[in-house]
Design a protein around this nucleic acid. Structure first.
Lengths: 231, 231, 231, 231
DNA sequence: CATGAATGAGGGTTCATTCAT
DNA sequence: CATGAATGAACCCTCATTCAT
């Protein structure tokens, strides 16, 4: 069982060939370009950071030249935004899917939520790098920061709140805990983010990753039971 | 009650040579320069990121010229490292202080630990920016990443493990929870890190900060009691 | 009779791509660029010396901008090396050509050798400046100094030795003189080098050049006959 | 017998302590400073060239600071000139001394002249470096180039002409050779200059120096007898 | 006299962006 | 569509020179 166990859903590469049937290879190439560029851009931005990434390196990664990028994106910053969007949208869709789940109990919903979070933020190398990139650079692009806050963060917070509420309604969760968490719902997700950074740091240092599944279980257990001995 | 309530300890600015008695203004200037420069560098690096920060802006911030920086630091990267170190050292000392506390119960120790973490990572604007900067850039300076991992992260993890162990020894904490957390001690600190990012994002978007003290309380309560209703 | 009488062979400028038929102007430009840049670089380096030469001036000389130079050369030092090589290679070829001459007598060969030396080191302004530049700067680029020593100096010394040997074999040269010169073959070429410096100094001072052909004749005569009256 | 055998005359260091008797050490220090600085400057200029030499390195060489140099010299260029002058003057004096020698025969005078030339240009490391420096940089300082031409070169040429004339007068030298050399007297000295460069290049490449005394003898022999077999 | 902190004018180098081909 | 030569605006870094101490 590898560390990439969380790849349970749509892991389509961004540069999908779009199953073009009768069109020539040139057509297919052309249609695939933006996705290829975004993918290469992600790799460079993640590795070097926005400012230090060079468009020439992005281009070379997929065997094109600098100029070609400008056929598809107006400039470096736009490419960055597009790349972030391309990665953000699936995450948002994931959240929407859960929100639609007229699931049963609070615990089940919570588990579903954590599953998604761990998948999206810790599940594989690219996810982790993306989170790191977002934290490091997004605040330099206010437009993105706002989109991120509006579409993902606040949506996630609402979802968490809803899940807790449901747990309280079904009698699973403690009402007082729910009230207390109202002002800090992200605390629920925090360990996943933490695991993300831990993994980035560790793999950056060339050390072996810890057991991610066990970490996820520890996370859930901590949320549900806390540390204290039941009286 | 402002957001800077956590400024309970030594918040001496990095500059200022402590005591300057009979020495001339030039002498005082000279002794204070490195600290001033580091402070200005922090501001620029935090605002623009390592690559986008300009030494000229760092200099202008304290009314000197670019060249002067080179009297005190060999170059941009060294300045960055020095700045990180200047911020990291106090955090390490903070951890050491707690480790020395032959405290009583696990809960008390845990509270102490959280207090420190929230102070150091969420307590004020600069702390938060520093954490963000570290996450965003440290991996580009492997030397720093390793120092960070060795001196701070692993030390913190040991401390957390010790605290939990003590809680188990005193009968406060659940043995099973302790065992489960052994592989993921950072989960304990995660909500503080999360709050840090949340605050950065929110203030970056120009919105008002939430009640940090309440968040800290919610954090502690969640850790201790979990979400579930006691059976 | 001008001073440039020695331009008897291929004095093609370094630029110009030889034949440019139907290709567009852009193509022709591109192919010619490295040569143009090297030529301009030579002029600047010769005039100001390596350290004081400015790439911007090199660029302006041929109507391009600083940045363009970096499309063709990795940096200032590489440009310098390339320029030296471009000038050195023809000289080496010249020596090889003579070495291939299965000439007749020692005197004839010696005359051939001197002809080349005077042409290559005194014959025209550029040659002279190049020698001066080499003497002044080569030692700062050990790589070049070694190449120069290995490919040109030692080759020339071997050639001189061979010429003298042949003169001895044919009975033209004095055996004792030959033996004595074995340890100092460069003495044979020395007057040409001297004339090079003299010309540089003199034209630098704005004075008229002496009669170079006469100097060359004096050189040959001195070598062959010496100063003493025959007994 | 080492290579420095030519050190037969006044090899006083430039920074002589001026045998001050009762004056304090401070006084002596002060009086010696300009000479020390010039000596250090020579070392740096010779090693790096004028443009690349740093005044700070000059200062450090003798344990003072940059600023002190400005107490004794108006600036970098003036220091360079002063250094060149300090080295040039003894050479000029050497020539004058020979010119005063109402010596006997032409051969004897010629030998005297060569002795000086080899001593001053090949005799030791510093002499050689100085010649190289002069060739490389002097033309960038027209003022110096003119002084050099007027005081040293032309004086040397006159001296050589006089020596040859005397040889002709005494019947030692061939009249035709004398006439021919009138337009190129430097040819006489050329091998010494050549040996200088050869030595610089060779020691720059870390190889062992050839036998300088033998080279000098070969030089003289070549001048007197030429290469041809006497008919 | 001597120091060395500070200045400020460059110069080498990089790279996003443009545009003729 | 794609190329890649060319531009030009920065930015890091160096260092001769100044001057308060």
């Amino acid at each position: 069982m590898t560390q990439e166990v969380f790849l349970t859903r749509d892991e389509r590469p961004l540069s999908e060939p779009a199953e073009a049937a009768g069109v020539g290879i040139r057509q297919r190439q052309k249609a695939a370009r933006p996705g290829q560029i975004i993918e290469a851009a992600f790799a460079e931005f993640a590795e070097k950071g926005y400012a230090a990434a060079r468009l020439e390196d992005v281009a070379r990664r997929i065997g094109i030249t600098k100029g070609t990028i400008y056929h598809y994106f107006p400039g470096k910053e736009d490419l960055f935004k597009a790349m972030v969007m391309a990665h953000l949208l699936p995450l948002i869709d994931g959240l929407k899917a859960i929100a639609g789940d007229e699931g049963t109990g609070g615990v089940t919903l919570l588990r579903l939520l954590l599953e998604r979070a761990w998948h999206d933020m810790v599940g594989n190398e690219k996810s982790r790098e993306f989170v790191r990139l977002l934290v490091g650079e997004a605040s330099r692009v206010p437009e993105l920061a706002q989109f991120f806050q509006r579409e993902l963060t606040s949506r996630a917070e609402e979802l968490i709140a809803a899940v807790i509420e449901r747990g309280v309604a079904t009698g699973e969760f403690h009402a007082e805990a729910a009230k207390r968490l109202a002002g800090f719902p992200d605390a629920i997700m925090a360990p996943a983010v933490m695991a993300c950074f831990q993994a980035v740091l560790i793999s950056g240092a060339g050390m072996p990753l810890p057991d991610i599944v066990a970490m996820k279980e520890a996370h859930l257990h901590l949320l549900l039971n806390g540390l204290l001995v039941r009286p």
